[in-house]
């Protein structure tokens, strides 16, 4: 019989799943909490750049789609917080860590959405990159995280498609619409590449996470996969990827591309992106404005419970 940590390692080695009450190394637990929380924070902060355009969506059909998409992101944040909670933390505490800046979210959401085409670009590029990142997480060694990701990936399958459809419509529309689409690609291309994190040579957490089956592929591998997938789609749209160094390598079957400027990524992560303060302030305000509502609901539940006890006695 394998007890405790031996059983943990045996399960990992056999590509099995670790479940909430299993023994696990403290490092594994902490890494997961950090990663799942960060993922959840990204979902709920990610509601803002897109939510910014719900009121201005240029057709009612687009408005409905965008509302459903932003709503999904709230749901995905919720699934992920619940997955983190199976590791013995509370959502309220994780939110506090987000609000006080002690836990991060994906830096992509610190860029502004300036035109309607940005909604297309986010769906196509940002959700596209997220899918490349997330699909391997459906096989993550931690069961609740993997299950949450299966649900997220299933629901997100429409997100990327709707973004591409927005851009496709713009690219086949008026010259002003096409220019809007190109401008969005120009601004979102580099931040999208940064979504895969620092290059492998500089990535601090990767090796251990790979050994634990939390991470399945390296940052650079996933970035390459994203570029290979995206460039032909840009061709279909008739848009130009803003990378002079982009070329197809017949021999490897992969695109060669210019690495993004990672000093910008580090700057944004540190809090100096165009929207860091705005995003966090909005989130904190919603949370603080809602405090009296949550308190009221708890007070009511308490009153109802004691009334029931009173009548049962």
């Amino acid at each position: 019989m394998l007890a405790g940590m031996d059983s943990f390692q045996a399960t990992i080695d056999a590509d099995g799943r670790i479940e909430p009450r299993d023994a696990m190394p403290e490092g594994y637990r902490k890494t997961l909490i950090r990663q799942i929380a960060q993922h959840a924070h990204s979902e709920i902060i990610g509601m803002q750049p897109e939510g910014n355009w719900i009121s201005r969506a240029p057709s009612l059909r687009r408005k409905a789609i965008l509302m459903a998409k932003v709503q999904d992101e709230a749901g995905h944040g919720l699934y992920l917080y619940a997955a983190a909670e199976t590791l013995g933390v509370d959502r309220a505490d994780l939110l506090d860590l987000l609000h006080s800046g002690r836990q991060k979210y994906s830096s992509i959401f610190n860029y502004p959405t300036l035109t309607w085409a940005d909604i297309g670009a986010i769906g196509w590029l940002v959700d596209g990159a997220a899918i490349v990142n997330q699909v391997p997480l459906c096989r993550c060694s931690y069961g609740p995280y993997a299950r949450a990701m299966v649900r997220v990936c299933k629901e997100e399958s429409f997100h990327q498609r709707q973004g591409f459809e927005i851009l496709h419509t713009l690219c086949n529309g008026t010259p002003a619409q096409k220019a809007m689409a190109q401008d969005a690609l120009d601004r979102w291309w580099w931040p999208s590449l940064m979504m895969f994190g620092p290059p492998d040579s500089a990535s601090t957490h990767s090796e251990q996470s790979m050994a634990w089956g939390i991470k399945r592929h390296s940052n650079d591998e996933l970035r390459q996969r994203f570029v290979d997938m995206t460039v032909p789609q840009a061709d279909v749209l008739g848009l130009k990827v803003p990378d002079e160094g982009l070329s197809y390598d017949e021999e490897t079957g992969h695109y060669r591309f210019t690495e993004p400027d990672y000093t910008e990524l580090y700057d944004v992560v540190k809090g100096n992106g165009p929207c860091n303060q705005q995003r966090l302030a909005h989130r904190v305000k919603a949370h603080e404005d809602g405090a009296w509502v949550r308190e009221a609901a708890a007070a009511y539940a308490g009153k109802q419970a004691s009334r029931r006890e009173g009548s049962a006695a």
Binding site: M47, L60, M67, A74, G75, V293
Partner: peptide, 29 residues
Amino acid sequence: TAEWIAAAPQLEEDVALGNIGLDQLGQAR
């Protein structure tokens, strides 16, 4: 209703108000 999305008192309510807003928008359309 849509103005509430990403500003509700709790995540569950963001989702609930999203559903209500989508119902209203569907009726409008």
